[in-house]
């Protein structure tokens, strides 16, 4: 079922043979996952399948016990911290929307703006016209232009999710990891989010972890099913939904 292993230089993210255990519990068990440059990939799986741990490993929050995590065909991520990986061009959206609530929506985007993250350069930083245009552009993309001066904490749940996606875009990453973007959203918001991610995927590689099957269908993405820390199946949504093993895992043994 799994596709043939692609060449390293074709991948944006190359996760090979990664295992992580917490106090004897194997959260990831020899996980291998290859995301091609420019791909939009959905990852599904029951609770505890290792989806969030996989993201933690890629973004530097958790160190794998064994295995390789290689970004952009050559950069080893397993020894780097979160900030370094973020600056390399991997953006991550959390499951629970996490924005800077006591700051304005505009400041949230400005803080995420790609550039020098040095303490001393932040002392003298000034937005230039080009950067301001970039912020406006992202405001258009996430449809929050009217809310730019509001406090991020006053936004609705769905708007916060979009703001967070907007912050990822400001970082100008090559790869976006998006954890359950439509959890708690209304149907209309879910639909809008699917459109948003599809348009982002035109110019970025995107990995989406999601439970909501309608949403995954709307994304029309290649699907990977995780189970007990490794890949159970891979293919189109229809193919994996008809997969015996997948049905067994989802419907219970």
């Amino acid at each position: 079922m799994t596709r043939a292993k692609p060449e390293l230089h074709d991948t944006i993210l190359y996760v090979d043979g990664v295992s992580v255990s917490f106090d004897g519990f194997k959260a990831l068990n020899n996980l291998s996952l290859y995301i091609l440059a420019g791909e939009l990939r959905a990852i599904i799986g029951p609770n505890g399948a290792g989806k969030t741990t996989m993201m933690d490993v890629v973004t530097g929050k958790t160190r794998p016990d064994t295995g390789d995590v290689i970004f952009n065909g050559g950069t080893d991520l397993t020894r780097m911290d979160e900030a370094r990986i973020a600056n390399l061009g991997i953006g991550r959206k959390f499951q629970k929307p996490t924005v800077f609530e006591s700051q304005t929506v505009y400041d949230n985007l400005e803080l995420a703006l790609a550039g020098n993250r040095n303490v001393f350069s932040s002392l003298v930083f000034k937005l230039n016209g080009q950067q301001r245009d970039r912020i406006d552009e992202v405001f258009e993309t996430i449809s929050l232009s009217a809310d730019r001066d509001r406090l991020a904490g006053d936004l609705s749940h769905g708007q916060k999710q979009w703001l967070e996606i907007g912050m990822l875009l400001m970082q100008d990453p090559e790869l976006l990891l998006v954890d359950e973007p439509v959890a708690g959203m209304t149907d209309a918001e879910t639909e809008q989010t699917a459109e948003l991610l599809k348009s982002i995927a035109k110019s970025h590689s995107v990995v989406v972890v999601e439970h909501d099957m309608t949403f995954v269908r709307a994304l029309a993405a290649h699907v990977t099913v995780l189970h007990e820390g490794s890949v159970l199946a891979e293919g189109t949504l229809d193919a994996v939904q008809n997969n015996e093993q997948v049905i067994e895992v989802y419907l219970g043994r």
Binding site: E82, A86, F100, S102, Q103, E164, M170, Q171
Partner: peptide
Amino acid sequence: SRLGKVLVAIRDAENRARFIGY
């Protein structure tokens, strides 16, 4: 300054600040 905004960002959502590269 921008540094002040980063500080408040760290105060309110440390992980977000880390994952956008600070």
